[in-house]
Design a protein around this nucleic acid. Sequence first.
DNA 1: TCTGGGGTCCTAGGACCC
DNA 2: TCTGGGGTCCTAGGACCC
Length: 435
Amino acid sequence: MGDGTLPGVQSRSEARIVLHVDMDCFYASCERLRDPSLAGEPVVVGMGFEPGESHGAVATASYEARKYGVESAQPISQALDALPRMADARDDPDLDVGDAGYYRPVDMSFYKSVAGEVKAILHDVADTVREVSVDEAYLDVTDRTGWETVADGDRTLAEGYGRYVKQRIAREVGVPASVGVAPNMSTAKIASDYDKPDGLVVVRPDRVRQFLEPLPVDELHGVGPVTASELRSMGIETAGDLARADPAVLGDRFGERGRELYARARGDDDRPVTPTGRPKSLSRESAFTEPTTEPSRKRETVLALAADVADRATQRGALYRTIGIKVVTPPYDVHTRANSLPGPVDDPALVEEVALSLLEEFEADPVRKLGVRVSKLSFGDEEQTSLDGFAAGSGDDEADASTDAEPRPDRSTPGEERSSGQVSLGDFGSRDAGS
DNA sequence: TCTGGGGTCCTAGGACCC
DNA sequence: TCTGGGGTCCTAGGACCC
């Protein structure tokens, strides 16, 4: 440990510097941004909070609301039991206004606009930014700062940089963030979570192992309830236990993931921070208030979801090669069905048709939730692996690189004459439809 | 925990090909 | 109808994450 105690000096290290930026209860913070009177109040944001709706779940709870036991993913009914609506508390003499909260419906487009301001800062402070979700990103700032300790002893330049990023977000956007700084992604992720909200946790390269050592396994990214309880049954409670376990045994038990977890627990993670990529799939789903058997309701729902997904794909310039559905039957059995096409298309009518035909199998089943998904996406500006000799512009395809907003202009009228310019679809879906 | 919505990655078995 | 191996694609399901 006797490194770099000289004033402002180099303990020269090749270690990377990765920041994980995690916005604190982001949706609630956004709500406070447009309604400052919510500052310091319990705020709950979720689906199903519109007047007249009674099912849905919590997307985000402010830390004040969490004190009452409100958690994200909690059913709305439970949240309301733990923390009544302010409006109800005012009307009801039995309820205490001091123990009530503010409920807001999710307003994604607003949150995205706030997130856009945050992202602009992130791209300004880092060369490489990987956005994981609307409220979370990894940054590689190796070239912008260093692991050198500064004069007063224990602090590093990297810590100052992390503080700077946090403060810029707070000052310029007005929302709090927690930042983790570490030599790799998995440790940075844990660090940002370590002192939420409004945290700044720095894990120097020489302290990674001791930082991870005492953490319960389920705080590792990638360890959920199933893996955690299996690990515990093996006597592995902490990251330290995991780091000392036999990697071969972990490999046998959990496959590739086991070996990966072992490495992460030891602080070994050399995944580079790669820029945010294209989506791999697009989906839309919705739940019924209660399970339904009615075939017509199911079909209508699937049609609406299909139209929605296809529309989003079109807007994002995505072509899809696989169309699938998801059917959740009571108690909570998830079934998926999918069909792949001979080549990528942008064809809303086909999404509806395929989704409906896949649904037929569940005609008689009670269903609590339905979803439609398109996957195997490709994008207009990518190199088009030309399908069965169709060669979308054989010879000179760099010419249409500019048409990325409208990848396949030939596809116009949904319904009639499909596959005019696209790959021929053959008798898609006739697999179980007979003939 | 009686469970919302949008994603990612991994695995396993089968079809099919050489 | 005993049988080899290697590779790819597809589908379904599972675990996990925010």
